[in-house]
């Protein structure tokens, strides 16, 4: 499904090669947890696999399509419909409330069923226990609430693969568990999860652990 071959990456102005000829394969329905020491390249490989960081060499294929050989339009389609990415930091558009933050990015694209998206977002907010916060602005939410909103945003278009960078880091046990349950439910609906983590709970929930 998602295949990475001979991925190498070194950041500009850095002497160290973060990834060197890394190979990786993700099968449909998997929950793969990537572990490793800080600086081992977990976030970098996630970004490369998500199609948001071009590797120096190697290729990443999603269903035989080389992500970095695609046109901007086709890659954008993949980002909107096939790969949902949750960054480590909770990043929002500060001028919009939480509901708009979740739905707005998809409204200006090809999606015409805006009303349905708003309803779906409200339903997911309820599931994750932040339904009454939909009209709050990002700065009004706690870290855990923000993380849940980020997750809903990544899952709203029901992507095939969800890639999460440290989904539970910095959260209390209860919130972490909510998020893990949510991700696991999503996987059970036939989707695929890939998460970089230090959290043993995530590792326990994963179907495979890859120590980078």
């Amino acid at each position: 499904m998602l295949l990475a071959e001979n991925i190498s990456k070194r950041y500009k102005n850095s002497r160290r090669t973060v990834l060197e000829k890394v190979n990786f394969k993700l099968e449909e329905g998997e929950f793969c947890a990537i572990t490793g020491e800080s600086g081992s390249g977990k976030s970098t490989i996630l970004a490369v696999l998500a199609g948001i960081l071009r590797p120096d060499s190697g290729k990443v294929c999603l269903d035989d399509a080389d992500l970095y050989a695609l046109s901007d339009k086709d890659l954008s389609y993949i980002h909107q419909r096939k790969i949902g990415y949750v960054p480590q930091a909770n990043i929002f558009l500060k001028q919009y409330n939480i509901l708009d933050n979740i739905v707005f990015p998809y409204l200006s694209g090809d999606t015409k069923n805006g009303q349905e998206l708003f309803e779906r977002a409200r339903a997911h907010l309820e599931i994750l226990g932040i339904g009454d916060l939909w009209d709050r602005y990002p700065y009004e939410l706690s870290g855990g609430e923000q993380k849940r909103a980020c997750l809903i945003r990544a899952l709203l278009m029901k992507p095939q693969i969800v890639i999460c960078d440290e989904p539970t880091t910095g959260l209390d046990g209860k919130t972490g568990k909510k998020i893990l349950t949510y991700l696991d439910e999503y996987r059970k609906s036939g989707k695929t999860i890939l998460a970089a983590t230090h959290d043993d709970h995530v590792k326990a929930c994963a179907t495979r652990v890859w120590n980078i």
Partner: peptide, 20 residues
């Protein structure tokens, strides 16, 4: 920069972003 990057990650095309 961050806002644009976020929108690209969420599937907004460069063309749309440039237009906006």
């Amino acid at each position: 920069k961050q806002e644009v990057a976020l929108l690209r990650i969420l599937g907004r095309t460069r063309k749309t972003l440039i237009r906006e």
